[in-house]
Simulated assay, not measured.
Amino acid sequence: MSYKDTGLIFAGNIYMAAIVDGVAKDFAGPINVTQLELTPPAPETIDRVSYQRDTYGQVLDSVNLPGEAPSMVMAFDSLPAGLLADALAGTSEDFNATLQTVTAEPVTLAQGVWQKLPYPNVDVSTIEVTLESDGTTVLTRGTDYDVEAGSGLIRALSEAGAAAVTIDYDTEASTGQRILGATEITKRRQIIMDGQNLVTGKPAYVTIFSASFSASQAVDLMAREFITGTLEGTMTTPEGKNSPYEIVMKD
């Protein structure tokens, strides 16, 4: 191998997979990763100090023993449901809301506060709000009451609407992803970077065989900039490998 002085700036497509029973499953990506920081193991140094007359205080032998494990930090602003769950130390699952029909649901409406309906995803074209006092007077949406359809909230807008009512409506069927926050503290992942050294234009590849991550940063859901997630943890050497990670720089 000949030496040639060059700098290094990486650009890369990064992919990440959950490790289940020692096997990396489906890889998500490419992920827009803004930080991929690898920290070498911090050794514990053991010194043998001389107490002899002519070399008193000098180090006769020094050995570095394994100390803290190699660690890494990964920050990203790609946040589909699975990665948002990682950033929140949670898990994601499929969400499937089927059509529901609500009939004569009793609610007492008030001005200035919202009441929660039994089901969200209200189909506003089907809602009918009737005064309970006579059972026939139908209130007008937008004049007597207002509805937040997605969350299933309802409130009175007028004195006429601030009353005991019964509500009929259908919900809209919907699908998506549900994130269950703070349900998975440790996340075992494998990471692959398909990259390039921008200085030389040559390809470079990084494989982190196994990392035990935890979410390490608060996630501000109302931030006025792109939300980021940060995972931090220890890299481990899986069975069959001689190192926790490798970097391949091609000629």
Rank of each mutant, 00 (worst) to 15 (best):
L88P: 00
F10K: 00
S2K: 14
P80T: 09
G195V: 06
P43C: 01
Y56L: 10
V138M: 03
P238K: 09
L117T: 07
S216V: 10
R189T: 11
L83V: 05
T126K: 09
L79Y: 03
I247E: 09
M1I: 15
N242G: 15
E172K: 14
A11Q: 15
L38W: 04
L131N: 08
D26K: 14
E232V: 02
G82R: 13
S71Q: 03
V147I: 12
D168V: 03
T183F: 06
G67Y: 01
P106M: 00
E105N: 06
V20E: 15
P30T: 04
V107F: 10
Q100C: 04
I185W: 15
M193S: 10
N121D: 15
P106N: 10
T98K: 06
D5G: 14
V49W: 02
M249W: 03
V124W: 04
T6I: 15
Q196F: 13
L231M: 05
Q35S: 13
I192W: 05
T140L: 03
L79P: 08
A164V: 01
L84N: 00
S133T: 11
G22Q: 05
I154M: 10
T103K: 11
T230Q: 14
S78T: 09
A28I: 13
K187R: 14
L153T: 03
G112Y: 09
S50N: 08
I227H: 05
I9Y: 11
S62F: 06
S216E: 09
E172L: 15
V165I: 10
V49C: 04
G112H: 11
E232F: 10
T136M: 11
D21P: 03
L99N: 02
I227W: 03
I9Q: 14
E37M: 09
G90K: 03
Y56H: 12
Q115C: 07
